[in-house]
Each structure stands twice: as C-alpha cells, then as structure tokens.
C-alpha cells in the first residue's frame, strides 16, 4: 500500500515540476514581456531599466529558478488587470466558484450515469438499455456551449424558471452544471455499461448466483465493484474536462470561476493571472488523478501491494 502510494505521489510531484517548466517556457516563447508592458513610445532606456529591474538580462536558468522559487511560495507577481491584487490572490478568489460548479456537475454525472450504465448492462436490450444508448448518443454529439445556450433560452428566457447567468443561490448552478455534465453522462454511461457487460460474464458472477444470491446483490455488489475500475479511470479525465469545460461554460453563463477568469485575463493580457490559472488547473488535475489512484487501491485489492 505505502509503496504504491509513494510511487504515485512522486509521479504527481514530477508532473507538477514539468508544468512549471512548461509555463515558464511558454511565457518566454510568447516574446519579451517588456514589449507587452511598456507603451509603444517608450524609450530604449526605459526598456533597459525594466529589463534590469526584473532580472530579464540574467541567464535563463537563473531566471527559471527565481520563477520556481516564487511559484513554490505561490507568488506569480501582481495582476496587471486587477490592480492591487496578487495574481494568485485573484485566482484563489475565483477558485471556490469553479470547484462548487465542477463538483456539482461531477455529482450529477456520477449519480445519473453510473446507475444508468449498470441498469443498461444488467437488462441488456431492454427499454432502459435503448434509452441509455440514445442518451449517450445525444450527449456525445451535442456540444456543451450550444446546449448551454439552448438551456438558457428554454429555461431562462422562455420559461423563466431559472436564472440565466451569474453566481447566486442553488438555482444559479443548475443550468451550467447540466450543460457541463451532459457530455460526461454520455461517456460515463457507455463506459460503465461496457465494463459491466464484461464483468457480468465472469465466472465469479456465476458463482454468486450459484450461492443463491439475488440479482441485486449480484449486479450492484459483485459486478459493479469489479467494473468500477473503468468509470473510475475516466473520473481522472472527467476532472480535466470539468476544467476545460469550465472555460466555455463559465463564459456562457457568466459564472465567476477561474475558467471565466482565464478568458478575462487573456483578453486583458494579464500574464501573471493566466500563469496562475494554468498552474492551479494543473494542480487540480493532478490531485484528481492521485485521488483516482487511491480509489483504485480501495476498489481492487490486487493493486494495494
């Protein structure tokens, strides 16, 4: 158990380190920040001053380690757009909104998709199975921003049942969360179904029935426990799609999370904030996958050693 955890944990650290290298490199690839910061009519002396002040004339490696040192302290510099705040401060202010919406979307996805996938497999070719297939097809063919707009139009504008944008009470979360989980439900249902179909053919399922167990215990205990590995693996990907999805959905619904923030920061050429968002995205993604690895060990005892 401990060895497994140690390996996974070191992998996560290495991944995080790689992210810092990429973020650092990307910033330098996008040209000198001095050009972006100074007005067009700035003199070369002014530019030179800024370069020296920020240490941009020092070797790249030295610059990287300065950057890394600051990153480790959560220091990405000050935001250029939101004056008077640190870049990381701005991101952390908006993080709860994203986490709230994202976890609600994941919750909807898991609560709908896993039971649906299990039932579809347990009653193959039944009405439930057919509906699950149709739902999965719709989910995978409808883009989420389009669905978001349609949801706003239908439930917000036409019916007037739910608020169309912004963050407020629970009702504000419903539409964006549905739009976000839409695709995930489709993918997760299909994955769960096919994993369950494989497992239901196993000999230990036969043995469970021979023991006199009811179908409910056979399907939900014996089969799902073994099939769970597959949707669980997807859960790591899901965390990623919540983040990338949040950029689009938060913009459509004007949800003040870090996805929306990323777009705003890019528009305002607020590099420190963009960098912070990227790093926070990476950390969330890596933590989600670490969590998945730990859940693996819980689900499958063979992984624990």
């Amino acid at each position: 158990m401990s060895k497994f955890f140690l390996v996974r944990f070191s992998e996560a650290i290495v991944a995080l380190w790689a992210i810092t290298v990429i973020v650092f490199a990307l910033t330098h690839l996008s040209g000198s920040p001095v050009d972006a910061l100074l007005p067009d009519d700035a003199t070369p002396e002014q530019a030179q001053m800024l370069i020296e002040e920020w240490g941009l004339d020092r070797p790249l490696l030295v610059q990287y380690f300065t950057f890394l040192g600051n990153v480790l302290q959560g220091d990405f510099g000050d935001s250029l757009k939101w004056r008077g705040q640190t870049a990381m401060g701005v991101v952390l202010d908006h993080l709860p909104a994203t986490l709230q919406l994202g976890s609600f979307a994941v919750l909807i996805g898991v609560v709908v998709a896993v039971p649906l996938g299990v039932l579809a497999a347990a009653r193959k070719n039944s009405a439930i199975d057919t509906s699950a297939n149709v739902l999965a097809l719709l989910g995978q063919s409808i883009p989420n921003f389009w669905l978001g707009i349609i949801l706003v139009w239908l439930f917000g504008v036409t019916l007037g049942w739910l608020p169309t944008s912004g963050r407020g009470g629970f009702s504000h979360m419903i539409l964006p969360a549905i739009a976000m989980s839409w695709f995930q439900i489709a993918a997760l249902t299909r994955l769960t179904r096919s994993a369950m179909l494989d497992v239901l053919d196993a000999e230990y399922i036969k043995l469970a029935r021979i023991k006199g167990l009811g179908e409910r215990a056979v399907v939900w205990k014996h089969a799902l426990r073994n099939a769970a590995i597959v949707p669980l693996t997807y859960f790591g990907v899901l965390a990623g799609s919540i983040l990338t999805g949040s950029v689009v959905i938060e913009t459509v619904f004007a949800w003040p999370g870090i996805g929306w923030l990323a777009i705003e920061a890019i528009r305002g050429r607020d590099y420190p904030v963009v960098q912070s968002v990227v790093v926070v995205f990476a950390v969330i993604y890596i933590l989600a996958n670490l969590l998945v690895d730990l859940l693996y060990a819980y689900v499958d005892p063979r992984i624990r050693r």
Binding site: A202, E203, Y204, L207, V299, D300, P301, R302
Partner: peptide
C-alpha cells in the same frame, strides 16, 4: 466451477 482462478471475486 471449473476454473478456481476466475471463480472467486477478486474484490
């Protein structure tokens, strides 16, 4: 059953 390797639930 025939195959003891697969007839017990691994979980």
């Amino acid at each position: 059953l025939q195959d003891p390797q697969t007839s017990l639930n691994p979980a």
